[in-house]
Simulated assay, not measured.
Amino acid sequence: MGPPARERMSGMQESVRLKSFELVARDIAGVDVHLLHALTLSVGWPHRTKDWQFLIRAGQGIAAVDGIGRVFGTAMWFPHGDDFATVGLVITSPRNQAQGGGRWLMDRVFEQCGGRDLALNATRAAHGLYLSLGFVDEASVHMHQGKLARDIPALPPVNGELSTPGADEFAEILPIDSQAFGRSRERLLTLLSENASICVLRRGGKVVGYSMRRDFGRGHVIGPVAAVNAEDALHLTAVHMKALRGRFVRVDTREADGPYATFLEQCGLSIAEVVTTMSKGRRFLNRQADQPWFYGLAGHALS
Rank of each mutant, 00 (worst) to 15 (best):
S93F: 11
S93I: 09
R95P: 05
R95F: 12
R95E: 09
Q97A: 02
Q99E: 15
Q99K: 12
G100F: 01
G100R: 00
G101Q: 00
G101K: 00
G102H: 00
R103C: 01
D107R: 02
R108A: 12
V109S: 03
F110G: 03
F110I: 00
E111R: 11
E111V: 07
C113P: 04
C113R: 11
G114T: 06
G115S: 06
R116F: 15
R116E: 14
D117M: 06
A119H: 00
L120A: 05
N121C: 14
A122H: 09
R124K: 13
A125N: 09
A126V: 04
A126Q: 02
H127S: 08
G128C: 00
L129C: 05
L131W: 05
L131R: 03
L131V: 08
S132H: 11
S132K: 13
L133P: 01
F135W: 00
V136I: 11
V136E: 06
E138S: 05
E138F: 08
E138L: 09
A139K: 07
H142F: 14
H142G: 06
M143V: 10
M143I: 15
H144I: 01
H144L: 08
Q145Y: 07
G146P: 03
G146R: 02
G146S: 01
A149M: 06
R150V: 12
R150C: 08
I152T: 11
P153M: 04
A154K: 06
A154L: 11
L155H: 06
L155T: 02
P157S: 15
N159F: 11
N159A: 13
G160W: 02
E161V: 14
L162S: 08
L162Y: 04
L162N: 04
S163N: 11
S163W: 05
T164I: 15
T164Y: 13
G166A: 02
G166I: 10
A167G: 14
E169A: 13
F170W: 06
A171Q: 13
A171R: 15
E172T: 13
E172R: 05
I173V: 09
L174V: 10
L174R: 12
I176A: 12
I176C: 14
S178Q: 14
S178E: 15
Q179L: 15
F181W: 12
F181A: 05
G182F: 07
S184R: 14
E186A: 13
E186V: 07
R187K: 13
R187A: 08
L188K: 01
L189T: 02
L191G: 04
L192C: 03
S193E: 03
E194I: 07
V200I: 15
V200D: 05
V200E: 06
L201D: 14
R202T: 10
R203N: 12
G204P: 14
V207Q: 00
V207E: 03
V208K: 09
G209L: 05
G209M: 05
S211P: 03
